[in-house]
Design a protein around this nucleic acid. Structure first.
Length: 636
RNA sequence: GCUGAAGUGGCUCAGUCGGUAGAGCAAUUGAUUCGUAAUCAAUAGGUCGGAGGUUCGAUUCCUCUCUUCAGCACCA
């Protein structure tokens, strides 16, 4: 028996002695006869090797993740093929499939423009129409290098050179184009019915800023035009949820030219912020945290002691006071360490949990700034937990539970990563290993799924990161739990054990929101600006039908004020429809309409942002309903 | 920071192949007193991101710069 592997890596078995042509005929009409017969003429040796290989994989359809991967990976080759036809001098780098679509990196001397993108897209469609057969073959290392050198593709040569010695080096070829590629691909280009090139951007070769910047083209393809239309529609919809757009429309915050990365919070934005902080304080008090506040500016020497100077200096702001150098804090930890260290602690007092809504400043590179998600000053909902080693696991689990509890309140889905020792770090290998294992153990004990993010830990310790998604699927790190054996050393922190001797405590640094700013950004996008009642800046607009009922509106407002429901009266000289429209656009959760019949019945007509007109109700009934909704932090 | 794109009244945008700008919404004033997503009219509002340069003349062309956007890199 011989096994034949096709471009999509599907495998079939045949009797010995069968000809390649016979195999081709036996398969399907979609796999053109010339696919394999052409191979006989061109690369007979290669295909024969293939025929003797034993590979097992399944047929790929677009429907599942693997199928999409094959579909988009094949599409990226079509993109590269089109670029090569139009710009033969372009050098190919890499072209993988991604979560939504694919990209390909090119090194070209001209810069791609939107017009060029259109030309490339047309060429792709032409290639798909030509529907060249897709052939997969393997080459020995030396031959593979020779092949790429011959076609003047230095990036490919570099890639092959870096492959492990025993790696299978496969190529995929379609018409006048071939590419080094592990596959799998789809079997037939005609399956690609819709093509859209989305954007052009710079990207460093092999992801390092030390290397040359290449031009990356992003694109997406689908088996049906309708799927592409739907995808593009979804992207447009998602853009409407962008917190930067909504922040402006709902008058929540702004970032001015005078302060790149330094957001201004408007009155309405402050209400959300304050509600979050109130919630935060309450939940922390319940869990044995004590709130502190440490200074924003402290002596530079402190930052040398903590290690921030050596590891984080480039991201810090400095200032001088009476010829003494001070640093603006980029993190709250050293202040927390000083607080703990100011007096003696008994083992009986531990764990000590010090929480702080700490304003930190970091010099983020200009290109990194992004609305509220990435700013230069932000408030971390920080806490430092000082504990004995035997308390580590329970404390980590406690923080994981706490984080989970908070995220559930907002209805967030999140994913968890464990970030390990970075290049720039302090402490010994053993300490890092111990700390990393402690974090992994706690996650395992909680049955949480997580991925490992190699080398992304803080310089003083490994961390568990909680990532939340924004409206277009970009993920942002919010919560983090960091285990630290280093700061207690550096600040010579101790506690007196039951043996009467000094011991070294362990520290957890943790945030749950991460930064209040980023968290608000995520919240805006998550709720598309239609906040749950407890967070809504204006919880209800009171709308008198005309000026005759302004007096009644005031009475109603007074009753709502008394129970701390945030309301506004819209007594402008406008029609009801106009005011309703505006309240709807502002995503105000409730509108109370007041006119003659309400006044006569001493009731109010309620309209909800989500469900529309709810009819007349007694004011007490409405208050009860709203207060319950607020207390339970209900969201839709 | 890097690559590319963009910056025009408070907002959303049009426009000028070089002769100093226009709409809608918002604002103000007046009329309208109106029951669930836009009542009508009038008025006011911009040194076209900033600084240089070319030109008789620049918002338009060139250079630099700032900010924003997409992605990369970096990170809560």
């Amino acid at each position: 028996m011989i096994k034949v592997t096709f471009p999509d890596l599907s495998v079939r078995e045949y009797q010995e002695g069968i000809s390649v042509l016979e195999i081709a005929e036996s398969i399907s009409k979609s796999l053109a006869k010339e696919t394999l017969s052409a191979t006989i003429d061109g690369k007979i040796a290669d295909i024969r090797t293939k025929l003797e290989k034993d590979v097992t994989l399944k047929f790929h359809k677009f429907e599942d993740a693997e199928g999409k991967d094959a579909f988009w990976h094949t599409s990226s080759h079509v993109l590269a093929q089109a670029v090569k036809r139009l710009y033969p001098q372009a050098k190919l780098a890499i072209g993988p499939s991604i979560e939504n679509g694919f990209y390909y990196d090119f090194d070209v001397d001209i810069s791609f423009t939107p017009e060029i993108l259109e030309k490339i897209e047309s060429e792709m469609k032409k290639i798909i129409k030509e529907n060249p057969p897709i052939i997969r073959y393997e080459l020995p290392r030396e031959k593979a290098i020779e092949k790429e050198e011959l076609s003047n593709e230095p990036y490919k040569v570099e890639l092959i050179r870096d492959l492990p010695q025993d790696a299978i080096i496969s190529f995929y070829e379609q018409g006048d184009f071939f590419d080094l590629c592990a596959g799998p691909h789809i079997r037939d280009l005609s399956a690609i019915k819709a093509v859209k090139l989305l954007s052009i951007a710079g990207a460093y070769w092999r992801g390092s800023e030390k290397n040359k910047m290449l031009q990356r083209i992003y694109g997406i393809t689908f088996p049906k035009q309708a799927q592409l239309d739907e995808y593009l529609f979804m992207i447009e919809e998602a853009k409407k949820r962008d917190h930067r757009k909504l922040g402006k429309e709902l008058d929540l915050f702004s970032i001015m030219e005078e302060g790149p990365g330094f957001p201004f919070f408007h009155p309405k934005g402050m209400i959300i912020r304050n509600e979050l902080e109130n919630f935060w304080r309450k939940e922390h008090a319940k869990r044995g945290y004590q709130e502190v506040k440490t200074p924003i500016i402290l002596d530079a020497e402190l930052w040398k002691r903590s290690g921030h100077w050596d590891n984080y200096k480039d991201n810090m702001y400095f200032t001088e006071i009476d010829d003494r150098l001070f640093a603006v804090k980029p993190m709250n930890c050293p202040g927390g360490m000083l607080l703990y260290g100011r007096k003696m602690h008994s083992y009986k007092d531990l764990p000590i949990r010090l929480g702080e809504l700490g304003l930190v400043h970091r010099h983020e590179k200009s290109g990194a700034l992004h609305g509220l998600m990435r700013v230069r000053n932000f408030t971390q909902d920080d806490a430092h937990i000082f504990m004995r080693e035997d308390q580590v696991k329970d404390e980590i689990i406690g923080v994981i539970d706490f984080t989970d509890y908070v995220y559930k309140i907002f209805g967030f889905e999140y994913n968890v990563e464990v970030s390990t020792k970075p290049e720039k770090s302090i402490g010994t290998e053993e300490q890092w290993e111990m700390a990393t294992n402690a974090l992994i153990d706690a996650l395992t004990a909680k049955g949480k799924d997580f991925t490992i993010n190699e080398g992304d830990g803080a310089f003083y310790g490994p961390k568990i990161d909680f990532h939340l998604k924004d409206s277009i699927g970009r993920t942002w790190q919010c919560g983090t739990i960091q285990l630290d054996f280093q700061m207690p050393e550096r600040f010579d922190l101790t506690y007196i054990g039951s043996d009467g001797l000094k011991h070294r405590p362990v520290v957890i640094h943790r945030v749950i929101f991460g930064s209040i700013e980023r968290f608000i950004g995520i919240l805006i996008e998550h709720f598309a600006g239609a906040f749950p009642l407890w967070l809504a800046p204006v919880q209800a607009v009171i709308i008198p039908v005309n000026a005759a009922y302004n007096e009644y509106a005031l009475q109603i407002k007074k009753m709502l004020d008394d129970v701390d429901i945030r309301t506004e009266i819209d007594d402008r000289n406008e029609k009801l429809g106009y005011k309703i429209r505006e309240a709807q656009l502002q995503k105000t959760p409730y509108m109370f309409v007041l006119g003659q019949k309400e006044q006569d019945a001493n009731e109010i007509t309620v309209r909800s942002h989500k469900d529309g007109d709810m009819g007349m109700m007694k004011i007490d009934e409405v208050i009860d309903k709203l207060l319950l909704q607020i207390a339970t932090k209900q969201y839709q």
